[in-house]
């Protein structure tokens, strides 16, 4: 098995585990973290895609850079909203997830 395949498979595994986490978690902070890990898996797959003999393909690198910047922005906004919701409503879960305690 070549190195890019290892990276790509690890990326897919991360993506699947984190997607499961996103779908099952109720605490919004956990969901935000899960989506960040999904993002990392996606980026790892992209980096593996860039591997070719010489030189590496620059386009996936450009995509990963952009993707990381976007991911940081979205995470920051999500955390700000989560803090506001917690301050206003005293819960870090979305309203539909609250009755389970």
């Amino acid at each position: 098995m070549t190195t890019p395949i290892v990276y790509a498979s690890a990326g897919v595994a991360m993506l699947c585990i984190a997607l499961f986490g996103f779908l099952t978690a109720r605490h919004v902070l956990r969901r935000i973290l899960a989506l960040n890990i999904v993002g990392s898996g996606v980026f790892m797959m992209l980096v593996a895609l860039a591997a070719r003999p010489d030189p590496p393909d620059p386009i996936p690198h450009a995509l990963v850079m952009t993707g990381i910047v976007v991911g940081v922005c979205v995470t920051a906004l999500a955390l700000a909203l989560l803090r506001r919701m917690f301050a206003d409503e005293g819960s870090a879960r979305l309203p539909e997830d609250r009755e389970f305690g």
Binding site: L15, F22, V28, R31, I32, L35, V38, G39, V42, M45, G67, V74, L77, A78, L81, L82, R84, M85, D88, E89, L94, P95
Partner: peptide, 22 residues
């Protein structure tokens, strides 16, 4: 109550974007 609605939208939009990018 718009804050939690915005947060729900954000989570869904982010998940949708990640599926798209895969």
């Amino acid at each position: 109550s718009a804050i939690s609605a915005a947060l729900r939208y954000l989570l869904l939009a982010l998940a949708g974007s990640l599926l798209y990018i895969v």
